[in-house]
Amino acid sequence: MPSPKRSIHVVAGVITDARGRILLNRRTENRDMPGLWEFPGGKREQGETSEQALVRELREELGIEAEVGDWIMDVPQLYPDKHLRLEVRHIRSWKGSPRGREGQAITWVAPDRLSRYSMPPADLPVVAALRHPDRYLITPEPTTDDAAAHQDWYARLARALEAGVRRVQLRTPASPARVALAEQAVARHRGSVQWLLNRDIELARRLGVGVHLGAEQLLQLDARPLPADQLVAASCHDLAQLQAAQRLGCDFAVLGPVQATDSHRGATPMGWEAFEVLRAQVSLPIYALGGLGADDIVQARRHGAQGVAAIRAYWPA
Rank of each mutant, 00 (worst) to 15 (best):
M119K: 10
Y79Q: 07
L54T: 01
E29N: 08
Y79R: 09
Q77Y: 14
W37R: 00
E48L: 07
A18E: 04
L54V: 13
W94C: 04
P40Q: 11
R131P: 13
S50D: 15
K95E: 09
D123K: 09
V55P: 04
I64C: 01
H83S: 08
V55G: 10
M33P: 02
E67M: 12
E38W: 01
K95L: 13
Q46E: 14
D112M: 08
V126Q: 13
A122M: 15
A66T: 08
G69N: 01
R44A: 02
L58R: 00
L78T: 04
E65N: 11
E67W: 01
I138K: 05
L54R: 06
G103F: 12
Q104R: 12
R26S: 00
A128S: 14
D70G: 07
V55F: 00
G103T: 12
I22S: 10
W71A: 08
V109M: 06
G42D: 11
A129N: 07
N25T: 08
E60T: 12
P80T: 02
T107H: 00
K43G: 09
V14M: 05
W71Q: 09
A110L: 14
L58P: 08
R26D: 02
E45V: 14
K95P: 04
R113N: 14
L124V: 15
G20T: 07
I138W: 04
R89T: 03
D123C: 15
S118T: 09
E45H: 14
A129F: 07
L84F: 12
Q77K: 12
P34A: 14
R113K: 15
R89L: 14
V88Q: 13
P111R: 03
